[in-house]
Nucleic acid binder design. Sequence first.
DNA 1: TTGACAAAGATTGTTAACAATACCTCAATC
DNA 2: GATTGAGGTATTGTTAACAATCTTTGTCAA
Lengths: 236, 236
Amino acid sequence: MRPSDKPSIKKIDIDADEQMIVDRIYSAVMEQRLAPRTKLSEAALCETFGVGRMRVRRALLLLGSQGIVDLQSNRGAYISCPSPDEAREVFDARLMIETGVVRKLAENISDHAITQLRTHIDKEDAARAQQERTDIIRLSGEFHVVLAKGHQNAVLTRMIRELVTRTSLIVGLFGSSRNSSCPDDEHRQIVEAIVAGDAELAEQKVCHHLIHIQNGLDLERDAVKETDVARILKSS
Amino acid sequence: MRPSDKPSIKKIDIDADEQMIVDRIYSAVMEQRLAPRTKLSEAALCETFGVGRMRVRRALLLLGSQGIVDLQSNRGAYISCPSPDEAREVFDARLMIETGVVRKLAENISDHAITQLRTHIDKEDAARAQQERTDIIRLSGEFHVVLAKGHQNAVLTRMIRELVTRTSLIVGLFGSSRNSSCPDDEHRQIVEAIVAGDAELAEQKVCHHLIHIQNGLDLERDAVKETDVARILKSS
DNA sequence: TTGACAAAGATTGTTAACAATACCTCAATC
DNA sequence: GATTGAGGTATTGTTAACAATCTTTGTCAA
């Protein structure tokens, strides 16, 4: 009997609205449809999601606590604009954490997780084949979340999700070449190393992969883009 | 020139009150002065900290988003009571993350970080020598945060702090023997391995250390304690 | 044209009152 | 005696109005 068969108590009871707003903005950032410095005005979000100002403010606070948006006193909330230093922090953290993730995954992975990973990589290939830019970006990031999900560990998954989302902001800001997002079949190689049970190789692959992404960045540039918040979030 | 010498823009502007409340509760949990299931009523917190209800609610939302408190609709906020499964999640995550932390630290650590670590360990010894239970508990947990701080990485440090704090809850709930918290000189051994630049050994030491703590738990028990919230938080 | 200054408008922050829900007490019934 | 239900109390959730701050606009002078 699995422990998950006993869902007697549902613990977190944050209202669905709130989580929905957070998730929408998370997705939009992950797909680079909301660029850094984009203002998220309370009124606009209330309108877009059809909720009261309180919900919006709570959602913004949550996003702010995770570094996705930047809350400025009396000035409003803006999609976070990571500094080069913050970018390095995120990549360093990912290196430290994700090597551990794949190592332990290589040591012991469930069949279900393997299926999930292979399915995901197929989706990535399909998106690349059709040149669906938005899908490619989203799936490239989500791959790392799927890796984390392999551990069935909510805490870990949440942390990885935050790091991956912030990486999207970073790549959007500092990405120079288009292939910098998540290239080639590096994802597939990581999965194969894991499935083969080669912890050392998997660790090395993920390490190179992350460094590869980082090398595709120009940490000096700072681009500024404005976007139509309501339109983007509505169509999500 | 260090990058930290350029504090031109202060980005996060969360009011001091809010952060103060969160920090106080964090500390109290870390020192096991607030036991799981303790109710944090809004009125009591308003009184204790002398702030409006809005601030309290925002602080509670933040704590809830990090799994420190459990927010129940229409019922209030309670110090989180981790299930055995959650406990395993926290320890698994710590294993994956902290091995990476010490490995990279062993590869490259600043003199300043070494000083910080040694100073901290001296404090731990002093607290143990004087049998200051509260200090011992706090410092034992903080050691791991100091490790993270060695990377001067705010993101990483925040994540470790969350995991360490949740560990305090877990140890408080499921700890069987008193020595289970953070025993012997394992911390010192970890630091020495790092200073010696022996990544392999450091990784192994931290791994054993975490497993050691976990082995001191009885994940079946579920203790229930009530505490005087206002008194505890005020004296912090 | 450019800059500084002031007023108007818009946006965010805060408070207080109200609504909804849960909790507790107590009585009535089985 | 235990259980169930109703009513009152306490606590949380929500809304709306108000206050504070920032931003923009327009005017005037250099």
